[in-house]
């Protein structure tokens, strides 16, 4: 089995973010802390689990991003991936999923992958487009939001369960090669091992310049970025912990919510 993992770096969502009105996007700078998209971590874990079942498998990982994004490739190698490739793009601002998908599809087109895995959605752009677009560009069947998979390698088939509304599962059998986008909850991503991480740090990760790969025009662009509007009054309570608690209890009591 030859498996490709497509991963993305995202800004740490727990920290405050800064918006950049010039690029009309999230400000791209090193003040933000960047890490691997959580859904992509699940995709990496799923691939490592597949390799445990099919030890002959070769796991490749690829990302599109600036120099800084090498960090998440090292993390994937530390988790048990065999080879990494960095598609270098110093593009700042919004990068269309179609462009990312086109670069990755071009990279993958001559490599005969049996399976391509990626996260169901990225935590920053939140569209879930890149995976299905790569599949389409490579004319591969695709299953999104996969919560369970089982491979029958002799039959060249993969059984998948897609998570659909209210947690129901849409079950399908797909002929390989195929692309799956992985939903969280499919597994618990492991921490990178120290020995693998140390070994990865000695490797020189091959870099491909995105511009040399393929020229692609964006098909949509952000016109504006802003902090979200409020849908409720958002009254902020002040004071010490117990003052806040008493005030809240008083508000709830006044609204007859304490019975």
């Amino acid at each position: 089995m030859r498996i490709l993992l497509c991963i993305k770096e995202v800004p740490e969502t727990d920290a405050p973010i800064m918006l950049d009105q010039a690029s009309r996007w999230i400000r791209d700078n090193n003040l933000h802390c960047y890490r691997m998209n959580r859904f992509d971590e699940c995709a990496v874990e799923e691939a490592v689990l597949i390799k445990e079942k099919f030890p002959d498998s070769i796991l490749d990982v690829v990302t599109v991003g600036p120099k800084r994004a090498e960090k998440i490739l090292l993390r994937a190698l530390g988790m048990g991936v065999d080879n990494a490739t960095h598609i270098l793009s110093e593009h700042t601002g919004y990068l269309s999923p179609f462009i990312t998908a086109s670069w990755i599809a071009k990279f993958a087109s001559d490599k005969d992958y049996d399976l391509i895995l990626t996260g169901v959605i990225s935590e920053d752009n939140m569209q879930g487009q890149t995976g299905p677009m790569i599949a389409e560009l490579l004319s591969m069947p695709c299953a999104t939001s996969v919560i369970f998979e089982r491979i029958s390698y002799e039959e060249r088939l993969i059984y998948v369960e897609r998570e659909i509304e209210s947690g129901a599962r849409h079950c399908m059998k797909i002929l390989l090669p195929a692309l799956l986008t992985v939903q969280s909850g499919i597994n618990k991503p492991r921490y990178p091992s120290l020995s693998k991480t140390l070994r990865a740090k000695k490797l020189r990760i091959p870099v491909i310049c995105s511009d040399a790969l393929l020229k692609v025009e964006t098909r949509e662009r952000p016109e504006l970025i802003r902090h979200p509007s409020k849908s409720r009054q958002s009254l902020i309570l002040e004071g010490t912990l117990s003052e806040k608690a008493l005030e809240l209890a008083a508000i709830l009591d006044k609204k007859s919510l304490i019975k």
Binding site: R24, D124, T218, E223, I225, R226, P228
Partner: peptide, 25 residues
Amino acid sequence: GRITFLRSVLGGKAQAVFSAMTDIT
């Protein structure tokens, strides 16, 4: 004349307004 679409990004921490540059959207 330009049609724009608003959507949430970054887990709802920001909202972005998008427009398409193609004949079909």
